[in-house]
């Protein structure tokens, strides 16, 4: 369980995250939604110790993220940020094998290589494994990064807008894959998403943020209502039932 207690993040004069308290249980897919500047990505960075917090505590299975040695945490929790610009010239396999660093410290065993191969297989990247990252399309590269995170084999995997720069087909493919990671591999997947319909169709829980605070927290059924969406986005949208999923048509 990830337990977030009274967490705040302040820069000079602006509050980005404001006294957030949350519990994200083990297992399943949790999506964080909200308008631009709501503090979603910052919250994810605080949970994953990429940023120091101004106040509050975050524990992952009882381990305080600011106190626990980084390498121990790296076996429990992984994060994929939005912007991944690697300056090194690496092959897909090189990149995925970095996911084993917390275990191998750079000296790969046969078991580590097997892990990497499984992650590559899970993402369907076998044919591209020895290609260089800069030769791949955006979607393929994104899959390679996800494979690295899965190869890290942590119970908790955090993704900051994993659908960025993906077309419809690849976006759906990515969501199905993350769903499978939760269902088949038993991971706890936490996502920041922009598209509320993806959040609705693929999550077990949705957390809605606005102005640095958590506004709503519940199942897709509870969040995907006219009143709640208006509350979050200041927008009046229609919610429809499509094959048992709640879909909002906010385009017109």
């Amino acid at each position: 369980m990830i337990e977030i207690a009274h967490v705040s993040k302040t820069y000079a004069d602006t509050v980005v995250v404001r006294d957030v308290s949350l519990r994200i249980p083990r297992g399943g897919v949790t999506s964080i939604i909200g308008p631009n500047g709501a503090g979603k990505s910052t919250l994810l960075s605080l949970v994953s110790r990429l940023l120091p917090m101004t106040a509050g505590t975050v524990t992952v299975d009882g381990l305080d993220v600011t106190q626990t040695p980084s390498d121990i945490l790296a076996k429990r929790l992984s994060i994929l940020r939005q912007e991944n610009r690697v300056t090194s010239r690496l092959t897909v396999r090189d990149l995925v094998e970095f996911g084993r660093y917390p275990y191998s410290k750079g000296r790969l065993t046969a078991e580590d290589r097997a892990h990497a191969a499984r992650a590559i297989g899970f993402l369907g990247l076998e044919a591209l494994a020895d290609r260089y990252l800069d030769e791949l399309s955006g979607g393929q590269r994104q899959r390679a990064y996800v494979a690295m995170v899965l190869c890290q084999d942590t119970d908790y995997a955090l993704f900051d807008e994993p659908l960025n720069n993906l077309d419809m087909k690849h976006a759906v493919g990515m969501m199905k894959l993350l769903r499978r990671a939760a269902d088949d591999l038993g991971k706890t997947v936490v996502l920041v998403l922009h598209d509320i319909n993806f959040a609705s169709c693929y999550s077990d829980t949705i957390i809605a943020m606005r102005d640095g605070a958590v506004l709503h927290h519940g199942t897709p059924q509870e969040i995907m209502t006219r009143d709640v969406i208006r509350d979050i986005y200041d927008m009046d949208v229609e919610i429809q039932d499509v094959r048992g999923y709640r879909i909002s048509s906010y385009y017109i």
Partner: peptide, 22 residues
């Protein structure tokens, strides 16, 4: 520290994610 440099080259966030004391 040779393996550490390879991880450092991935960038700050990726390095911290992999458990490096950046």
């Amino acid at each position: 520290l040779v393996p550490v440099y390879d991880v450092l080259a991935l960038g700050r966030d990726a390095a911290i994610n992999l458990g490096l004391d950046y």
